[in-house]
Design a protein around this nucleic acid. Sequence first.
DNA 1: AGCCTCGGGTTTTACGTATAACTAGAAGCG
DNA 2: CGCTTCTAGTTATACGTAAAACCCGAGGCT
Lengths: 356, 356
Amino acid sequence: MTSGDETEQRRDERWPTARGPRAGARATSRDVARAAGVSQATVSLVMGEKWRGRVSERTAEAVRSAARSLGYRPNLAARDLRLGRTRTVLLVVPALTNEFFARVHTGVVRVAREHGLGVVLYLSPEGAGPARDPFASASATLDGVLASSMAAEALGAIRGGGLPLVMLDSDPGHEGASATVNPDIADGMRQVAEHLLGLGHRRFLHLASDIDTWTFRVRARALADALRGTDGAAVRTERAPLTVADGLRATEKALAEPGHRPTAIVCDDDVLAAGACKAARRLGLHVPADLSVTGFTDLALATAVEPELTTVQLPAEAVGEAGMRALVAVLDGRPPAPEALPVRLVTRGTTAYARP
Amino acid sequence: MTSGDETEQRRDERWPTARGPRAGARATSRDVARAAGVSQATVSLVMGEKWRGRVSERTAEAVRSAARSLGYRPNLAARDLRLGRTRTVLLVVPALTNEFFARVHTGVVRVAREHGLGVVLYLSPEGAGPARDPFASASATLDGVLASSMAAEALGAIRGGGLPLVMLDSDPGHEGASATVNPDIADGMRQVAEHLLGLGHRRFLHLASDIDTWTFRVRARALADALRGTDGAAVRTERAPLTVADGLRATEKALAEPGHRPTAIVCDDDVLAAGACKAARRLGLHVPADLSVTGFTDLALATAVEPELTTVQLPAEAVGEAGMRALVAVLDGRPPAPEALPVRLVTRGTTAYARP
DNA sequence: AGCCTCGGGTTTTACGTATAACTAGAAGCG
DNA sequence: CGCTTCTAGTTATACGTAAAACCCGAGGCT
């Protein structure tokens, strides 16, 4: 007696698409109404929490009990059609295989659930070919959009949507955005610089992302700002895609060049930092004795490598949560202020005093 | 009668960021019909590919052009309501922060898109509290379900759904499943054993997951099977949650115990392997000279650590793709056979000849 | 001629819900 | 008493789509 719903194999039903048993064997609000001896409208009122003074407690309880025993669950397609909204938002990110965005997603989903909203994902590289439309990927019409600035290709289409838009990891003045939520990247980089300067480092290699979005531009600017006041401080920049292998390559190349011998490598991401450490070891340098390395993000990888990475911990889930909260606020007509979430430098094993 | 001729009451493009009842002001099939000088039914016929002999090419083209110029996009809520299906499937996984599942998801989404299906996620640990219902989290009614066996808590509710269900990473005889898709774990473990035996190893530590699902049970069985024929081969098992820190702890504990000194540690996952390597180093052992270590999955982490992990590469995206294809097959009424996807051992830096 | 088919549409209806508009009885109240 | 207000509902309608059922003029067949 699992589901107990009459015959299970209704394959031969007259439904054009042979897709399984008709999905609508489910109880509707009218069924519930009949069972409870009230009108369909009353069921709708009771289920919709909006029955404060409209329905007596006795009737409401009767409806609820009928609904329970019939296993009633509102048909969301019908509700969405009626209301003209979908309680669904789109989250646009480059890829969930990037742990940072997987964590952002987790936060978004948590808050969305609290508000009874659904989340549908659009992974921006999907549209590699012709200009794909993120909205076509949504299984429903949307109420709003959360987007990371790193999902660059999709942004044009998003602006065209005319929907409430909250940008993550993006320029606070982003055009078309109703709000922005960022980790305080600049402060993170300031903490890195302060830490390294305190350890006596003066010659830096900045291993930067090859992607030119706000979140990375800010790092470069903040590093430059932090070093400006210090005599003899010099920074050289090398760019690379965000993979361990590319970080390794870029570091080897940079260290091979004559002239500027850095004592510390400041990386835009932990993945690059891991690559930098491998390159250093390959060149016979000992981290952190001969060379300090810092990362960004604090991925799982940061504590898997040895020595463990000194890195800036970004509150990824909190970014997702705050972003979703901001979107809810926009949806409710109370536009929120741009938010910068605090970050903190976690000092581990890849930084040490500069060798004299 | 009341409808009359409402002359294009175009809510002009002002978008009050508030949640308006008329969210779209979007063109409907009726708008297109009016513009093309046909009935709404004709528009519906043309848009839905089913107009073979029903509409002349001339009319069809007129409709298409009207639709294009109005930017018409069908209202999916209405379509779903009408059809009683949603073109949406549920993917149930433990967490996307687990890179393996993020990659599975990528594969699922790719194939789903090819078939015009949407994917909604249910992350099983969300329901930590009372028995939560995965279906409540779906923003729409569902056509089918893809589930990983590791999303254990949610499985009960899923069976109750009575929907077509494809299991990933699961016992091929799983009750209630219409199909199963697995990486060939047993063969992977066999390759590991063969590799290590060939290097002269006889005393093993099996660092296993503390989760008791098919995908991990198979590993243990396959390892035992592969060792059965070899004289003097002995394996001891230690269990741990799948994190680097826990892998480290478990390894330290196991190596501290007297008697059984393994020369190789076979891990159920790369994360554990990374922990094992750290533990070894902490105990003054050199990997791979003093101790060989193998992983499973081939996460990004595997090539970030040093030495790089020898590990079994699981085709995560292919699992997602095959799973989605199987679900489509089930939906179309042609139940597919259980699938076991090939895996391969990638030999890197953590395995070497056993010290005599 | 009478009848059937067939291409190319149109009319109509139903999907399940939320809510505006209405109703009816009871109560307040000067 | 006549009027309003409040309570606890009910009736009716619209959301946008897909498709069944109908319709009509032009051939085709016997």
